[in-house]
Simulated scan of single mutants.
Amino acid sequence: MNDPSTRPVTGSATTTVAAPIGDVYAAVTDVTRMGEWSPECVECRWVGGAIGPAIGARFEGDNVAAIGPITLKRWTTTCEVVEARQDSAFAFVAEGNTTWRYEFAERDGRTIVTESFSHPPYVGWQKWVYGRLANRRKAMTTGMEATLGRIKHALEN
């Protein structure tokens, strides 16, 4: 059986950056720069002695959800790196719930980067609030598109 209520919530976005794969990987895995690019994550910092991307390294991210100038919610997540393969993939799990993943591929001196997320399906009241009312999946995908666009702009200019 493939019950839709048990399928993870997923989304992805892809862009091509006119920069070497090593530069793109280095920028994305420097989580302290995420506040420059993400429309939701405003700041990140390595914690627990971590200084960079390595499996098991932890960082915190400060996030803000807003509609225009109106802040709806502020929160901090603790994330753990679960994959860090140089110039290939970087992934972390936020609060033990949502997996964020970046995949990198080189093509003709450019870098194709795909950002994706996956988390368990919404249940109970979350199904209505996050799934229908807020359409969180779409908002997260739109956020990834904005993040990748800003990374592209920063590395190409």
Rank of each mutant, 00 (worst) to 15 (best):
M1A: 15
D3T: 10
P4S: 08
R7G: 02
P8W: 06
T10E: 15
G11K: 11
G11T: 05
S12D: 13
A13S: 15
A13E: 15
A18R: 14
A19H: 03
P20W: 02
D23T: 09
V28A: 11
T29C: 11
T29S: 11
V31K: 04
T32M: 07
T32I: 07
R33I: 10
R33D: 14
M34I: 13
E36A: 14
W37S: 12
S38L: 02
P39H: 05
E40M: 01
C41T: 15
V42A: 09
E43N: 12
E43P: 04
C44K: 13
W46D: 09
G48K: 09
G48Y: 10
A50T: 01
I51D: 14
G52M: 05
G52K: 04
A54P: 03
I55C: 08
I55M: 01
I55P: 06
A57Y: 04
A57S: 15
G61F: 00
D62S: 07
D62A: 05
N63D: 12
V64G: 07
A65T: 08
A66S: 15
I67M: 09
I70P: 09
T71E: 05
K73Q: 06
R74I: 07
W75K: 07
W75E: 12
T78A: 13
T78C: 12
E80Q: 14
V81H: 01
V82L: 10
V82G: 06
E83T: 10
E83A: 10
A84K: 02
D87F: 04
D87L: 04
S88C: 05
E95R: 03
G96N: 10
N97V: 11
N97F: 09
T99L: 15
R101Y: 06
E103A: 05
A105L: 11
E106C: 05
R107A: 10
T111Q: 12
I112T: 15
E115I: 03
E115K: 03
H119C: 08
P121T: 01
P121Q: 00
Y122F: 11
V123E: 08
G124A: 02
W125D: 00
W125L: 04
Q126M: 08
W128P: 01
W128T: 08
R132L: 12
N135I: 02
N135V: 01
R136D: 12
R137T: 11
A139H: 13
T141G: 01
T141S: 00
T142W: 04
T142A: 10
T147I: 05
T147H: 07
L148R: 04
R150I: 03
I151K: 07
K152S: 03
H153D: 14
H153V: 14
A154I: 02
L155G: 05
N157C: 08
